[in-house]
Design a protein around this nucleic acid. Structure first.
Length: 460
RNA sequence: GGCGCGGUGGCAGAGUGGUUAUGCAGCGGACUGCAACUCCGUUAACGCCGGUUCGAUUCCGACCCGCGCCUCCA
């Protein structure tokens, strides 16, 4: 039995999909006006692990993650760059897919784009107007009338009167109530636009997700997820739009990932501590970044820092060290480690708890290996690799993990030559020379591991 | 101001009404020419104050502190 924390109820609930064995999940994806940053990576990895785990548990998962390829920020950026908005979004979508591949994030089942759903968006707005949940304003915009929707605030636990009292709510003249939000934005002359019954314009930010999720997954579906700062207003507004339009419950379970901080400060552009995925991948191997993200619970806040990434690297090294030189056995039956891992993951996808089981497997492997029980070590390796797969880690050949490093100062051949020279020196009992070679390699980022079978090496 | 989340050993990070989380780091030992890797052992924690209880880090209440959202943001 899988339990999932539902933002709506603020507690863990037993997960039962609408349809046996099938999960319909929608996650809010990128607005493609810039490169993905670490916060995106966090959400991407979290829902990737969730999808992998649900599939591992036998569910057929229909994972829909949208792309917002039309909005104010996109138009502004394209304008600044002097390119068309589609040239910008195509470029950013390609970059996003590249980042995902590097982080071992599996593609979603469907990746709908807002511009491909303009008709459906217009149809939904039409329904909302006809049901008096929305109105056309004097300026040509169409707004959702928040007062008309009874459950407004149920996700973010906000009361309408508190929102109205807040000084930061934008007061547009055309709105009936300050909390109303745009479904359709009238185009200014020269702006990108689509024709609609209310004049040329483009969709508001929230309506696209309502339209796409409903079209792809139906009026009611199992899981809706996204980043922590989408809870309000984006997800709250999605609920209002969809439930008002369809008259049926929207998503049954809402999941929100935790925020990313940088050196204990909120990650933000104004603080200058904003990191894109590609910047981070220049500094650390992709799998280390992924391990860092997976080593804390998806709902908790993570702190990106040099120390934390270095620690992730060390720990991942230990895991791969256990795998090194072992050919995983085939058809290994379920072990107590598997059960422990699954029990942790069943409990709201507790990946840090699951990683504990991984360490227990490592301890087993190392012990078996030390005692010369090769078959058992190989069986352990198989368990480690198959459990690692659920978290999207430990799928590389250990040698390529250890010796990968593209920007390395020494080639693998150079290293082998030096190791051979050291071996001769050791055989001659010229330990000063042997240590000199080892120190030289260390200075160039190569660490040697001696064993009775010879010397192996890794970059560190 | 409103709403929400959290305070666990040097650090990271789970969890539980009474028994070791785990990892990194540290310490002692084994292995080693010496190290590294690995193994064995080991130190160390539950913000503060009350309450419930035979017993609370774990439940309840107050307090202190931190964080997030309320504005574009994953």
């Amino acid at each position: 039995m899988i339990r999932i924390h539902n933002t709506l109820s603020q507690r863990k609930e037993e997960f039962k999909p609408l349809e046996d064995g099938k999960v319909r999940m929608y996650v809010c994806g990128m607005t493609v006006y810039d490169y993905c940053h670490l916060g995106h990576a966090r959400v991407l990895v979290a829902f990737d692990v969730i999808t992998r785990y649900l599939r591992h548990r036998g569910y057929h998962v229909n994972y829909v993650r949208n792309i917002t390829d039309i909005d104010d920020k996109i138009l502004r950026r394209a304008d600044e760059n002097g390119e068309t908005f589609t040239a910008l979004t195509d470029r950013m979508i390609d970059a996003m897919h590249e980042d995902e591949r590097k982080l071992s994030i599996l593609p979603p089942t469907e990746e709908p784009r807002a511009t491909a759903f303009i008709d459906e968006i217009i149809a939904m707005i039409h329904v909302l107007i006809s049901k008096d949940y929305a109105y056309e304003a004097d300026n040509g915009d169409v707004y959702f009338a928040v007062n008309a929707f009874e459950g407004y605030g149920k996700l973010s636990k906000k009361k309408l009167e508190d929102l109205l009292a807040g000084a930061r709510v934008d007061v547009a003249e055309a709105k009936r109530s300050p909390a109303d939000f745009a479904l359709w934005k009238a185009a200014k002359p020269g702006e990108v636009s689509w024709p609609s019954p209310w004049g040329d314009g483009r969709p508001g930010w929230h309506i696209e997700c309502s339209a796409m999720s409903t079209c792809c997954l139906g009026n009611t579906f199992d899981i809706h997820g996204g980043g922590p700062d989408l809870m309000f207003p984006h997800h709250e507004n999605e609920i209002a739009q969809s439930e008002a339009a369809t008259g049926q419950p929207f998503a049954r379970v809402w999941m929100h990932a935790g925020a990313v901080r940088v050196n204990k400060e909120k990650m933000s552009k104004s603080l200058g501590n904003f990191f894109t995925i590609r910047e981070i991948l220049d500094k650390y191997p992709a799998e280390v970044v992924r391990y860092f993200l997976v080593s804390s619970h998806y709902r908790s806040q993570v702190d990106y820092s040099e120390d934390n990434l270095v620690e992730a690297s060390r720990t991942l090294t230990r895991l791969y060290q256990a795998l090194r030189g072992l050919v995983p056995a085939k058809d290994v039956p379920e072990t107590e480690h598997d059960r422990r891992f699954l029990a942790a993951m069943d409990d709201d996808f507790n990946s840090p708890g699951a990683i504990t089981a991984l360490h227990a497997v490592v301890a087993d492997i190392n012990l078996h290996r030390r005692e010369g029980r090769d078959d058992e070590a190989r069986a352990g390796a198989a368990v480690l690799v198959r459990l690692g797969k659920i978290l999207g880690i430990l799928q590389q050949d250990p040698e390529s993990f250890f010796q990968g490093g593209a920007d390395a100062e020494l080639s693998a051949d150079d290293v082998e030559v030096m190791i051979a020279a050291r071996k001769r020196a050791r055989e001659d009992r010229d330990f000063a020379e042997a240590d000199r070679i080892r120190d030289e390699l260390a200075a160039k980022g190569v660490i040697l591991d001696d064993s009775r079978d010879g010397t192996s090496w890794r970059r560190g």
